[in-house]
Amino acid sequence: MTLDDTDRHLVNLLQDGLPIGPAPFEEIALKLAISQTAVAKRLGRMKEAGVITRFGPFYDAAAMGGAFCLCAMEVPAERLEPVVTCVNAYPEVAHNYERAHRLNMWFVLATETEAEIATTCKRIEAETGIAVLAFPKLQEFFIGFRVAA
């Protein structure tokens, strides 16, 4: 799909958020001189084409009561594949990345409670024989990140 200027404006402007109300596209439609239906249709097309991954509320998972923690392991190269299989099998492991560092495996644990973070780390350590370093967030900073379309 090729993006026209209106699509680009939509992506750029709608990253900042829309008001919650009966007609959330009213203001942006006026600004871009298109109908609210056209805004909705363009967003739907961009979602279908994979230009946007979603449109909707961004929930703060921690505010909903869950617990999250970034963890890292130093996995010997020759054991990487079996350890990946073992770690990924835990439903608590939400994301897992191989990174270029001595600590070469980085994953995020997502559990219902804080206590389950520690017990999951211990279970993974017991099963793999490799230490799990936990890096819980101490402070989160407001993010100004925007992608220019």
Partner: peptide, 22 residues
């Protein structure tokens, strides 16, 4: 929805662009 946004359960209602695609 407004109450959840006011209390920070909803950070914002917005578009999430696909970084890779852009």
């Amino acid at each position: 929805m407004q109450a959840m946004q006011d209390r920070g359960v909803i950070r914002r209602v917005a578009v999430a662009p696909n970084h890779y695609r852009l």
